[in-house]
Structure formats: structure tokens, C-alpha cells
Simulated scan of single mutants.
Amino acid sequence: MEAASGGYLFACLCGQGGWTLAGDHNEWAPTPMSQAGSLWWIEEEIAAPDGSLYKSHEPDSMQWIADPYGRRHGYDDFGAYSLVRASAAHLERWYAIEDADLGLVPRDLEVLVPQDGEFTHALYVHDGQNLFDPTAFFGGWQLTTSAPPNMLVVGITNTPARMDEYTQVPDELDGQPVGGDGELYAELVETVIRPRMEAAYGPAEVVGTMGSSLGGLISLAIADFYPDRYDMAISMSGTVGWGSLELHNETILETYEAAGKRDFTIYIDSGGEGSCVDTDQDGIEDDAPDSFDNYCENAQFDAILQSIGYTPEVDLFYVHAPGAMHNEAEWAARVGVPMQIFAGLEIAVPR
């Protein structure tokens, strides 16, 4: 933390060992820390310029760790590092966000803050632990390199209840009921997370929500629940046939068709390919055994959206990447497309 003199006091709840502190301020030459239980600290103030990197080091175990409770941080080839006060673009953590009345599990946020904290667009993105860390599953999305400079990106980490929270209606998988808490999750985003972020960083002129797979589905559901509050919904390989997998509940395709044309912009995509058929005659073309990555359902969704008044390349964007698989590497490869569309979006009415 910053001391009154302008220097910094460093402390870490690092646990047992023989922890030291190293960083840009001492040319990464580890300095011994004092200990009281699991708390380790440097007794004197340290002068460190804006944007200095630091880590704690335990020589015996050869561990190098970022401050586990530090807010400002980033990633490089050696993993996570902590930052003193930073004016350049950087990441910030927020811990255990919840609303006890909603009954949902607390979750963390990882926020990409632009240069000098200045932005016009804010994007709320699901499966937040896959967005920035290059050691995440399949290398993650690495949005620190692809996010436009005018954008605040709020990554909302998922929880063990992901399949329930990211689905707007119940369905079944292998005969077992699952899903249907999407409206509660949408309420958490809209009434808890978004106000917290706006209080900390300021409101954005343009607001969107984005995710992939079930994260894409819940992005569309959030925009449906709060159509006057979001300017764009981005769904990458979205599981838009949810509700019709083994049951016959209303899918997001049918929800949007019934609602009619609304004012927010929509981006949908998928990889995959295959024949598109509706064998069970439930209205959703999701029964072809050779189709994958939700290709048929998203192609059908694109046709539905055009039928209710959305205009391609104006307020509807549909991208098909033939043969692309359903994984983080594929989403990372094409996430720049919807982000650039969103970055160029303008809105005349404050949200």
C-alpha cells in the first residue's frame, strides 16, 4: 500500500517459508521480509515508480507468487505479477462479489482497466478466469492483447453452479435435470456487479455483455431480461438450443422471436458445420449427428433475427468459421471481431 510519504509498504499473506520481496524497485534481487504468522512484510518504505512489478519469492521451494490479495496485477511469460499504482492498462481483482438474498455462490471479478482509467465502452464477460491469464485452459482468450483501448472489460469468474447460472430455462442432460437460474445470475450482474463497477470506475457510454458456449447463451439472456440497459449482446458458439436438448422448454431463439425487434445490437457466431434438421419437430434444428459447435442452431438464430427486423452488418452480425472447434483457442482467435464491432458502437441515449 502507498504510505503518506509517497513510498510503499509491502506485505503478503504468503504462509510458511522464508519469503522475500523482489521487483523492479530492487532489480529483482530478493529482499528478506519480516514474519508474524502467515503475514510477511518489509519494515521500511520503498520508493517504486508508477507501474513497478513485484512478486514474493520463497527460495527453498523456488516459488514466485503475486500478492494473493493485491488488486492490481498482470501476466507475463512467468505467470502473474503484482503492480504498485499503475496508470498504464492493467488488471484489477475484486473478491467474493455476492448478494446473499439471491442465494448464489460468491464470485471474483478480474477487470481490464484501460490507460489512465479512461474508457467509453464497458463489456461484462462471463467465464472470467479464461479471459486474461495465458496459462488458462487452452491459453485463454488473452484479452489484454486484443481489447481495444477505449474498453473496460469486466471478467466475471464462473462457479461450480455454472450450468445452472448460465441457462435461462431448465433442460436435461442424460436424463438429469439441470439449469434454469439464469435470471438470478442476470440480476446479480445487473443489480450488484454493474453498480459496483460503475461506482469504482465510472459509467460507460456503451455497455455490452459477452461470452462463449453457455456464456454466450447467458449474454443473450441478460440482454433479453434487461433490453433497455445493454447496447450489445455477443454470443460466441452460444448454446442457443438450450431448453430443447432433452426437454421442450422455450429456447432463446423462440424467446427472441416472440419479443420482436429491439434496439440492442447482436453478434453471434460458431465454428462447426453439418446438415441441419429438426428430427424431433420441436422447432429447433439441432438434431443432425454430423453438426458441431452449435452451428445449426446459430444459423437458424441468424435467420430468425433477420425475419423480425434485424439488419445484417448494421445491428446483426453473424460469423461462421467452418470447421472451427468448440474451445478457448478458437474463441481467442476470433474474439477480436466482435470486440472491434462493439468498440465502434455508438449510442445516443445513456443506459
Rank of each mutant, 00 (worst) to 15 (best):
S5I: 05
Y8V: 06
L9H: 06
C12G: 05
L13G: 13
G23Y: 04
D24T: 05
N26D: 04
W28R: 08
P32N: 06
Q35P: 06
A36G: 11
E45G: 04
P49I: 14
H57K: 12
E58V: 11
S61C: 03
Q63M: 13
P68S: 09
V84H: 02
D99L: 07
A100L: 07
A100N: 09
D101L: 08
D108I: 13
V111W: 10
V113W: 04
P114I: 12
P114Q: 14
D116C: 13
H121A: 10
V125W: 02
D133Y: 03
T135M: 00
F138R: 09
W141E: 02
Q142D: 00
T144M: 11
T145E: 12
S146D: 00
P148R: 03
P148L: 02
V154L: 12
P160C: 14
P160Y: 14
M163Y: 15
D164W: 10
P170R: 08
P170S: 07
L173F: 15
V178S: 00
G179R: 05
G182C: 09
V189K: 01
V192M: 05
P195L: 11
R196F: 13
A199I: 15
E205H: 13
V206Q: 07
T209H: 01
M210G: 04
L214D: 07
L220I: 09
L220F: 10
L220N: 11
A223V: 06
F225L: 14
Y226A: 13
Y226W: 13
R229T: 11
Y230Q: 01
A233E: 05
I234Y: 01
M236L: 13
G241S: 14
S244N: 14
S244A: 15
L247N: 15
Y256K: 13
E257C: 09
A258C: 05
K261E: 15
I268V: 14
G272N: 05
D278W: 13
N298P: 03
Q306G: 12
Y310M: 08
Y310A: 04
E313F: 08
A329D: 10
G336S: 10
A343R: 07
L345C: 12
